[in-house]
């Protein structure tokens, strides 16, 4: 992956697959570090699967016995001197509070550090493809906080789907404006 925002999209796709109805993406950035966490209220993973989940030969896909998404992110974080963590509450053990949280931190000045890249495109892509999921996005830096909560948009839009092109273009500009301010 050439951008961390692609890893974020990839991990959020796991939340979609776990039938999450809410996904939270939070990014915290300082001058020399970047960390993010992606949490969802999806079905969660059983403890045995969770233990194996950073192994490339663990996957939920049915077309191939290899899954590289999580191992790639773990490697990307650890090779900058950062860290990776994944916790999960399986729906069988936690019927009310199930879900998964994936967090990673990076040292931006490390030679192997990958840039965040186009995070706006990641957020917009997730909404385009999953208009019924509630997405909360927060990106904090030393200077500002950029945020988006689809629940607020939905309250205004009522029956109009979030992935209507007019709405998608609005969201894109709404985020870009917050970044450029």
């Amino acid at each position: 992956m050439k951008e961390l925002s692609l890893n974020i999209l990839d991990i959020a796709e796991n939340s979609v697959k776990a039938k999450a109805t809410e996904i939270n993406i939070e990014i915290c950035e300082t001058a020399d570090s970047l960390s993010f966490s992606i949490s969802d209220n999806g079905k969660g993973m059983p403890p045995d699967f969770l233990k194996q989940v950073t192994n490339p030969f663990t996957t939920t896909r049915t077309t191939r016995p290899v899954g590289l998404g999580i191992p790639l992110l773990k490697l990307a974080a650890e090779q900058t001197g950062g860290s990776f963590e994944i916790t999960s509450r399986h729906f069988k053990d936690f019927p009310e509070t199930h879900g998964t949280t994936t967090s990673a931190s990076f040292f931006k000045n490390h030679i192997d550090s990958v840039p965040l890249g186009n995070i706006v495109e990641t957020v917009v892509t997730l909404i385009q493809c999953n208009p019924d999921i509630e997405l909360v996005f927060v990106h904090k830096t030393d200077e500002k906080t950029v945020s988006l909560d689809t629940k607020e948009l939905r309250a205004v839009l009522k029956d109009v789907p979030l992935n209507s092109i007019e709405v998608i273009l609005w969201i894109k500009e709404y985020l870009n404006e917050q970044y450029s301010q």
Partner: peptide, 19 residues
Amino acid sequence: GMATCGIAAGARPVLSAFV
């Protein structure tokens, strides 16, 4: 296709170009 393989190969800008 937006699995890890698709995303790593450049699916995100393709999807955006279609939209």
